[in-house]
Design a protein around this nucleic acid. Structure first.
Lengths: 164, 164
DNA sequence: GCCAGATAGTTACATATGAAACTATCTGGC
DNA sequence: GCCAGATAGTTTCATATGTAACTATCTGGC
């Protein structure tokens, strides 16, 4: 009996996927763990969501950005940015003023209170980054840098790019 | 005039964080891009959400797992698994039967239709993985493997571990 | 100048999510 | 045997999210 029927032929040639060996999955799990650990810190202490912190993070370094600029630099869509900014304005951590030249644009900045919080979170975040990545040798970091650049490039090529 | 006042002293010593240079952020953005590109494929063609595909992915390799097992192996919480399984059962892609020994446990498997879909998605996913990661040399992959193991370990140490 | 089409940002709606409460079942110590 | 506490899984509820529709403003061609 040489033919076991279609079902078993299929089974015999079946491709398998083991999540634990699947690069995209592993990358996702690790990345989320690290992000969550950092988010927990500023969320616990300052009641900030991830989108809110991202907005503050870019405004801390570049005051006066528009919401659209912030969206680009944080890889978030404009709705998320809009809502995060609305919350931050409500609690007095970000200020908003309409651009003098173009009435559609709002210029965003940290308020002094927002700046205070930024000044407290940045060292925490940098320390956590250091905690996680310091076990890597200089060589490892360099490799990771190259690898991530390559992966970013490949991901873009896939058209994985609806970052409005 | 040697003292510019507290505000400027602070400014002079201010730590800065540039998202584009911040490892956890870069990792997150790249990981999401890759995951989204893959998700788009099976979402478009088979109407599967990420949690649903993850459930099918582990059941394809290990039929008979409990929901709890699935949750562990997919790094999802039990609520997400419960809902994903409920949807998959509704559309006839997964079957559920109560364990003979322990009435609390349900044994999950792919139905023949579910298996068909699994058999179509796996090669697609593996090809996309290949597309993205094939630019890395064998050496790069090996190093990345070590680096990711280290990062996973460090992330765990941080207590980034509420994976119910 | 004026209007069609573009752009910045917000709102509405439908869906996805997680924490906590809940139900059903099991287990170990008595 | 029986019950207090543990475990598997579901449901509830409040919040977060993305798409699409909307408002307000601007711009280039006429």
């Amino acid at each position: 009996m040489r033919d076991d029927g279609p079902r078993d032929v299929k089974a015999a040639t079946r491709a398998h996927l083991v999540l634990d060996n699947f690069w995209p999955y592993r990358l996702s799990v690790i990345s989320n763990r690290i992000s969550d650990a950092i988010a927990r810190q500023y969320s616990d202490r300052f009641g900030l969501s991830v989108p809110e912190w991202r907005v503050m993070a870019v405004l801390g370094g570049m005051p006066g950005l528009s919401a659209r600029d912030v969206a680009q630099r944080t890889a978030m869509d404009k709705v998320r940015v809009s809502r995060a900014v609305a919350n931050l304005v409500t609690v007095g951590r970000v200020s908003r003023r309409t651009d003098a030249q173009d009435g559609r644009i709002t210029r965003l900045s940290l308020t002094p209170r927002g700046q205070d919080i930024y000044d407290q979170i940045v060292p925490m975040a940098l320390k956590l980054e250091e905690d996680v990545f310091s076990t890597l040798s200089a060589e490892d970091r360099e490799l990771l840098d190259r690898v991530m650049a390559k992966l970013a490039h490949q991901a873009d090529r896939l058209g994985a790019f609806p970052v409005s």
